[in-house]
Design a protein around this nucleic acid. Sequence first.
DNA 1: TCACGATTGATGCAGTTGCATGGAGTACGG
DNA 2: CCGTACTCCATGCAACTGCATCAATCGTGA
Lengths: 163, 163
Amino acid sequence: MMRRKPSLEAAAAWIRLMRVQSRVLDTVEHELKEAGFPPLACYEALSELSRAQAGELRPVELERQMLLPQYTTSRLIDRLVDEGLAARRECKADRRGQFVEITDAGRALQKRMGRAYSAAIEKHVGSKLSDAEAAELCGLLDRLGCSCNEAQALAVRDGASTQ
Amino acid sequence: MMRRKPSLEAAAAWIRLMRVQSRVLDTVEHELKEAGFPPLACYEALSELSRAQAGELRPVELERQMLLPQYTTSRLIDRLVDEGLAARRECKADRRGQFVEITDAGRALQKRMGRAYSAAIEKHVGSKLSDAEAAELCGLLDRLGCSCNEAQALAVRDGASTQ
DNA sequence: TCACGATTGATGCAGTTGCATGGAGTACGG
DNA sequence: CCGTACTCCATGCAACTGCATCAATCGTGA
């Protein structure tokens, strides 16, 4: 008979994972919002685009990079376009598809957000853990997820990489 | 001048925290949903209620226990009531307020969900970490949150405590 | 070349969330 | 007793999410 009852340690880890993540995420999102920035998803998308060749990606690729459902990606792109941060371009090779290209305004915003985002992460994560502890946390979290290896170095690096 | 750039370790920890949490949560929620259960928030609320004196709480208390905004709690209660899992009762001592009382159906569901929930946690967390690792993860996460100490032992225990 | 299955992307709909506000009741100083 | 400030809870509205489905196009095997 299968073991149904998680150890107390596992239950405690679960609850903390849920609570701490949402608390930290809410805090960071709220801070960026206060500063007049759009949601994080927007930033992540802009980062993917600016990292890409020629600053453009197929929606499908964006979708895979960000691990988002198709409709979420589609609507995220809508918003980027509405706000002039990206533009849809036709894809001649495959008429079903399209390209999404980051605009100058998009690049500018991505950079500015990157700085604010980095600062927020440092404030709410970096400053609370030593590098060794952070690395250890990574290791433990990786054991839970079939995790994030697949996904690139991520967003934050861009904002941070400006020395 | 303040340090804006998080260490690579901190950035990596951040991204994993976000990704792993949402992945694990989605998985568990989806599993419970497949099994025909309502969302987790429902379960947590039922657990709070069944733990409380006489199986009833003021919405405000529920709100504080669950760390939810007031309007979320209000609507969560609506749903519980709609589904016959709880009932609103008047509060004679304070006419502004009310009591929310869990019903028999609510208690029954709470128990059944508890078992499924525990199994899911064991499957997606417990089985992937040793007790020592889980404890270590708790410790690290606690350093990030002004964390979950305040909130009771939590939900899961109930489902699990039935041997 | 055609038919069929798969891929790409959009969208209608219902349910949920955040935000701001409102209405009812309480507490308390004067 | 009254006025003011506060607490408790609900709700309108706009934005967002998940789900299912659709239209268009592609690619492949016969």
